[in-house]
Design a protein around this nucleic acid. Structure first.
Lengths: 124, 124
DNA sequence: CTTCTTTTCCTACACATGTAGGAAAGCAAG
DNA sequence: CTTGCTTTCCTACATGTGTAGGAAAAGAAG
């Protein structure tokens, strides 16, 4: 169900998932600074995302308004699964270890994760 | 440094990282069953990986022997970073939460992660 | 209504990736 | 040495992705 979203397309979708329905110009303005894309380029991404069924579009006066038709969670889920298989051959434990070891998590995040894991342990 | 490795190429590299130097035919045989590729296709992947500098090749009698020139860790590192940025905008905490919540980890893995996180907490 | 600006529509192009095929060369068998 | 099988070398082609440009339409401005 979740369409395959390319790297540049993720940047665009991220804007739309967090800002809600927007026009191309608004997406362009909301993209992380320093992306270096022309407005035309962003338009291409939007058009492709509509083709793929990730967005729907309504004409609102002058400009198109783009709205997500797939929830972020669905895409995170399938991207995540694909990454997990590709790089860690499905071993979630290894993946989690990699990122925990790697990153400097904040104290709050560490606490939260400890709670999450403990509750998972209890439920076993 | 770590070359960009495509999905199919990861399957090939995984074989070589775990088996050590091998010929094309051996890679072909060692690939997860049901991949559906022809030997020719695997040869193309190998050739591209050599071009990219991920593998080196030595002629050994009849057939070529392929050896990794980049360690798996390097590639996991850069693939992981790219995934982290693309999907979680760099928020490692969110990524880890996603996979912990998602997966059913074994009791042993949960223990290991708890230890890892606790030691990280202490070190703060 | 004519002109300017914004935005869409259609088109393009190079490089990556999945997926091989045919020709050619090298070694094995008879 | 001739035939055949294995493996490489070179080539191909469709689709996806990054990166737009030019033409055209649709309001905004005067």
């Amino acid at each position: 169900m979740a369409p395959r979203i390319s790297s540049a397309e993720w940047d665009v979708m991220s804007v739309i998932w967090s800002q809600g329905p927007v026009t191309a110009t608004e997406v362009f303005a909301a993209l992380p600074p320093g992306h270096g894309w022309k407005l035309k380029t962003v338009n291409t991404f939007l058009a492709r995302l509509v083709e793929k069924g990730a967005l729907k579009v309504d004409r609102k006066e002058r400009a198109f308004v783009y709205t997500a038709r797939v929830p972020r969670e669905k895409c995170v889920q399938s991207e995540g699964e694909s990454f997990l298989q590709r790089v860690f051959r499905g071993a979630t434990g290894d993946l989690v270890k990699h990122f925990c070891a790697q990153a400097d998590l904040t104290a709050a995040e560490i606490e939260e994760l400890l709670q999450l894991l403990k509750s998972k342990r209890r439920r076993k």
